[in-house]
Nucleic acid binder design. Structure first.
Lengths: 164, 164
DNA sequence: ATGGGACCTGGAGCGCACTCCAGGTCAAGC
DNA sequence: GCTTGACCTGGAGTGCGCTCCAGGTCCCAT
């Protein structure tokens, strides 16, 4: 009752599960991110639970921009046995820290973009004639009152000198 | 008193301020991310406040992975005048939403990585002989007690079938 | 037996965003 | 007058991470 359940996954199943192409899967294997995967007599790959698990982690790490080369090093540690666990922890922690810093930086940039949007929205409420209207129809031929320079928005540092 | 202050920036200054190389700066200009920048009689570029400002936004958008092609479109809108402000807002808002989703995804992945680290730390506290020691010196020749399969950590979905 | 589908291989190709290079100009300082 | 350093040009090259391809095998259903 417990020995006739499927104990492997086909390439197609794995590709679907992780949203990767067969090519990418093979590429990962060639690149050493997965151990040499088992084969059916036909030559087709048979992925085991271990592969699925490692692939899950690989996915996380790739999605967070760990380069293939570092992932390969990590995978080698996994293959080298349990005694490499302390080193694996170091690799993951250092990646984690980089990731935190990256997320923080993204948030800062997001803030800046938000400010720019707000600045634009302010311009639009000061000059409603710029607002997009449904279709055609100009209510004034838009005499262009000395085009806005946009200056000052996003100028957060002190580098802006007086213009002559 | 207000007309003899520097009203431009040299390429070197701009590169330093935005932490870009001169090559990248020229590449951005060629790619249409900046308007054709002013020149000194010598042919050297002279960046104005407007360029600095746009570059600031370009930096934010590139740092948040907006592709060069979309940035070029945005820069064209800026060049086309104030009447494109509504469209610029749309571009920025849509980028913002993608960015939020991306940040959320990064955080999820970070959680998963954290769990893996915790799992490893748990293994280390169960099997202290695996812990990295200062240098050399084995207290047991490490008889490798049936290598851990690692299975179960990170297996969050229900796809894991029984193994034969 | 025939066709279709899933998969195999080695190797070439691609898109992106830079990055580098050779050879040249210009302005300032010694 | 000569060197140095900052910058110029057009164009080629690079690294990364896939992605595509031609030609082949295997197995199953009609």
């Amino acid at each position: 009752m417990l020995s006739h359940m499927k104990d492997y996954f086909t390439p197609g199943e794995i590709a679907a599960r992780f949203d990767l192409t067969l090519d990418t899967l093979r590429y990962y294997e060639k690149a050493g991110l997965l151990r040499r995967v088992d084969r059916a007599p036909s030559g087709h790959r048979r992925y085991r639970a271990d592969d699925v698990e490692l692939l899950h982690l690989v996915r996380c790490l790739r999605d967070t921009d760990m380069p293939i080369s570092r992932l390969r090093e990590f995978a080698e540690l996994v293959r080298d046995g349990d005694h490499t666990i302390p080193e694996r922890v170091e690799v993951l922690q250092s990646h984690q820290h980089r990731l935190s810093a990256h997320i923080d930086q993204l948030r800062e940039r997001q803030e800046a973009i938000r400010h720019k949007i707000d600045y634009y929205l302010g311009v639009l409420s000061d000059r409603p004639e710029l607002t997009r209207r449904p279709e055609g129809s100009e209510d004034t031929p838009t005499p262009a009152p000395a085009a806005l320079s946009d200056t000052a928005a996003l100028m957060t540092d002190s580098t802006v000198k007086e213009n002559a």
